[in-house]
Amino acid sequence: MSTPSRFTLTEHSLTLWRVTFDNAPVNLVDGTLTSELDEVFTRAENAGVAVMVFDSADPEFYLAHYDLSAKDELDHVLAHPEEVHPYTALLIRLSKLPLATIASIRGIARGAGSEFLLATDMRFASREKAVIGQFEIGMSAITGGGPATRLPGLVGRGRTFEILYGGLDMDGARAEQYGYVNRSFPDSELDGFVDELASRIASLDLQTIKDIKYFVNLATLRPDAEFKDQIDAFWAAVNRPAQQHVGKHLFEAGLQQRSEVERDLPHWVTRFQYRPGSDQE
């Protein structure tokens, strides 16, 4: 494959690979990232990789959210309702990869970034520097990448509603308490723990790793159709006045730039809520 533009790929060994997100200014998820990851997944399966770790080169932003400026993408989605969105397909594939996947979380992972984490096998977070959440309700949209399906099995029904209705961030310690992540660590200990665990798994029998993944997936994964329905609902929301109103004002305030808007997005979305019948533009 060609050199990725949205991340670096480090092949620590034949069986242990690392994807480090590096897409300035705030590590957005977009179509290019999706296609590049899809290529890496294919390579990893063909090469017999046992473990893949996902981390970020940016200590402030792990994966901020999906690129909401992609109007051409929205037009295509609305014109082809029968298609499964590529990012949804990627997350489904990620959850089923015949290898162990580990997210090492330092920085902000909201929206599509949180959805990526939820599709991995294991999630470990910096207690002080991880920020995880689903802010979409503040954008007048459902979460598109599957949290309504994946979160209940991890955190329970009530906490799922708290996360999706509230649209607020949580730090690594609270994410651990809720079951959003496996464990959280003091920031200075995160890398050492993940490296040791990944190296241990990478030294073990690949077929056994595949078998474990297969049977755990049988017990835990929901039907793929549920994910298509959610992303379709998200894109439908993006085409409605309420979402367009909030999005317009957020972009004017600094969305998708290295700004206070991105650092405290759950606060900013409440400033620009759409009120039908008012004199809002």
Results as ranks from 00 to 15, higher is better:
N46S: 15
V53P: 04
R43M: 13
S104A: 10
R123W: 07
A44F: 03
D121P: 01
A79P: 00
A50C: 03
L118K: 04
L68H: 14
K71P: 00
N27K: 04
L74F: 11
F116D: 06
A50M: 07
G111C: 06
A89S: 11
A64H: 14
L78C: 07
I105W: 05
H80M: 02
E115H: 08
E82T: 11
F54V: 08
R106T: 14
A112G: 15
A50R: 14
P59V: 01
F124V: 01
S95M: 12
D75N: 14
R43V: 14
L37E: 04
N46Q: 12
H65W: 13
A89P: 01
R106H: 05
A112V: 11
L97S: 05
A109T: 05
I105G: 13
H76N: 15
P59H: 06
R106V: 04
S114F: 00
L99S: 03
A112I: 06
P81Q: 09
A57V: 08
P59E: 13
L33T: 01
D58K: 13
D38Y: 05
S69E: 08
G111V: 12
G31Y: 03
G111H: 10
A103C: 09
D30I: 05
L74S: 08
T88Y: 00
Y66E: 12
V51M: 03
M122F: 13
G111N: 09
D30A: 08
E45A: 09
S95N: 14
R123F: 03
F116V: 13
F61M: 12
L99A: 01
K96L: 12
L28F: 00
V77C: 07
A112T: 08
E60L: 06
L74Y: 11
F124S: 02
G113T: 00
F41W: 10
F41K: 07
D58R: 00
H80E: 02
I102T: 01
L78W: 09
Y66C: 15
V84H: 01
D75I: 13
L33R: 03
N27E: 04
P81H: 10
G111P: 09
P86S: 15
E39A: 10
E39I: 09
L99R: 01
L74C: 07
A47E: 15
P81V: 02
D38F: 06
E39Q: 10
D67F: 05
L37W: 11
S95F: 10
A79C: 00
L63A: 12
S104I: 13
H76Y: 15
N46A: 15
A119C: 11
V53G: 02
D30P: 07
I108P: 06
L90C: 01
V40K: 12
P98A: 06
G111D: 14
R93Q: 14
D121Y: 05
L97Y: 03
L99I: 00
L91C: 08
N27Y: 04
L99Y: 00
R43K: 09
E60G: 03
F41Y: 08
L90Q: 02
T32W: 03
V51E: 05
L68R: 15
A47C: 13
I105N: 11
V84Y: 10
E60H: 14
L99M: 13
F124T: 08
S35N: 07
D58E: 02
P25E: 05
D38G: 03
L117H: 05
S114W: 04
E36I: 05
S104F: 10
G111R: 09
L99Q: 00
G48W: 07
L63K: 13
E82P: 03
